[in-house]
Amino acid sequence: MRLKQSARKREKMTKDRELENVLKHYTIPVINPGIRKHQITKLSADIQDMDYLPPQSFTGQLLTQLSFISGWIWLAQAGMLFLLFLCFFRADPFQVNMMMFCLASALSLILTCEMSKSFRAGAWEMETSCRYNLAQIFLFRLCILFGGDFLVLTAALVAYRMADGPFWQFCLFTLLPFFLSSAISLCALRRIGNRCNSAAITAIPLFSVNLAAWTTPLMEKGLSHLGLSLAEATPAITLLALALLLYHAGRLCTRAHYLSESSYAMQK
């Protein structure tokens, strides 16, 4: 064992001596002090950034933001699903459609309340000045909330289909009011910005979802003039409402400045 160790040591020493002999033929390069200083500065800055500002993936930031979404939202959604499944199979078709309509209103209301909380709390200005600014925070929140809504709506659709409800009625009583009222709310939020008021922002989805309900007979009448039935046209109209919602969501999440200046000008 000892012999082996000393042989290894001797071998290492020989290698070191060989390396020294090779290096003797080279001169140490002179490093330009300017380049050296620049490299040190750059590396120091990089190290400082790495220390507490690590690059974060979109998913990573999304998961971080998940813990800051109001807890009542998940409770409300779970409660809604529970009630839906509890009552669903005992109700007649009219009651089922009404329940779906209420579900759409509630989902839209939840979305609007959570999306507007920065403005309502007055934290928008502080958030705008952060690394992930308000537009990005809106994007994270929308992704999380749409994810939750997708799960709830999918569960509702499954239940609806199990109760032999036609897909177009699901679109008419659930998806269309939800998409439409959410689109109107996000549009309003983008335009109202920092002038956002709790009462107004709650009223918008409730009003628009009811507007969707009131206009259904008119829509039916209008479609009949075009030779179309509600069953034929509803899925397409729902898709249009979805496109509108995505458009307004996109506009909200890409805006650089949220301060409503027109009101400010009037104040001054």
């Binding site: 500002l53 974060q56 709390a121 934290a123 200005e125 502080m126 952060c130 992930y132």
Partner: peptide, 21 residues
């Protein structure tokens, strides 16, 4: 200066830290 009333002081600072990256 606006804040989320239901946040604790610590949670608020952690939230601000998260959006500051």
């Amino acid at each position: 200066f606006g804040y989320y009333p239901d946040f604790t002081a610590m949670k608020f600072l952690l939230y601000m830290s998260a959006i500051k990256g």
